[in-house]
């Protein structure tokens, strides 16, 4: 379970978010909505440990009773999915997947896991293709699976559907929810599209500008 206690965010003199608290159960997606510039993305950066130094944040983050807020990013086991799929253009699809699979596993298992992921995407023939040879929807799905293969403890989603065309969005949303449930980890989605929040079938928080 991921819990955030009394999160506040200030930029200079201006307070953007005050005293935000929430909890996310494993396999559940909490959606956070709100107009742009309100600090949604900064919340994600706070949770992943990459917050810009010009912003001031306070509050506690717990993952199953473990405090996270003082750990550096690479010690947090956090997965982040953004608008851009960020597949490495100089690696084939299977290399992109293998990149994420932890190294302590035997190489046969790693290979199998990557092939399973490709099966899941129903593109086993694209193993040696380059990311640029895939469609936008396929890239988004590969990016999600790559993130999950790294076995993160929790997942952050930063408007991952906004760059996809509407017809594709529905499929990708369903795919994302299904994978998160299978991995059984808490996930936080930041979006300004109510459809996204609805499709995630979880609780939804609306952030309003502070007066």
């Amino acid at each position: 379970m991921l819990s955030v206690n009394q999160f506040s965010l200030t930029l200079g003199q201006q307070t953007l978010i005050q005293g935000l608290s929430f909890q996310i159960q494993p396999g559940e997606v909490l959606s956070i909505m709100g107009p742009s510039g309100i600090g949604k993305s900064s919340l994600l950066h706070f949770l992943s440990g990459t917050l810009n130094r010009s912003l001031n944040a306070s509050g506690q983050v717990y993952l199953d009773k473990q405090a996270l807020q003082d750990r550096p990013t690479n010690k947090r086991k956090v997965g982040l999915l953004q608008q851009m799929p960020l597949l490495f253009p100089h690696m084939s699809i299977i290399e992109n997947l293998l990149f994420a699979i932890p190294e302590h596993m035997p190489s046969k298992t790693r290979q199998q896991k990557a092939l399973q992921a490709l099966e899941k995407l129903s593109i086993p023939d694209k193993a040696n293709a380059l990311p640029s040879e895939l469609s936008g929807g396929q890239q988004a799905r590969v990016a999600l699976l790559r993130t999950l293969l790294a076995e993160p403890d929790y997942l952050l989603l930063d408007e991952p559907f906004s760059k996809l065309d509407p017809a594709l969005r529905r499929d990708v949303r369903a795919f994302v929810l299904e994978q998160i449930r299978q991995s059984n980890i808490p996930a936080l989605l930041v979006t300004h599209d109510p459809e996204d929040a609805k499709a995630m079938q979880g609780p939804c928080l609306d952030l309003d500008p502070l007066k």
Partner: peptide, 14 residues
């Protein structure tokens, strides 16, 4: 830089 940041999240070998 987002590519490198993503890589560091996926694999902690900076």
């Amino acid at each position: 830089q987002a590519y490198l940041e993503q890589a560091n999240r996926l694999k902690p070998c900076v």
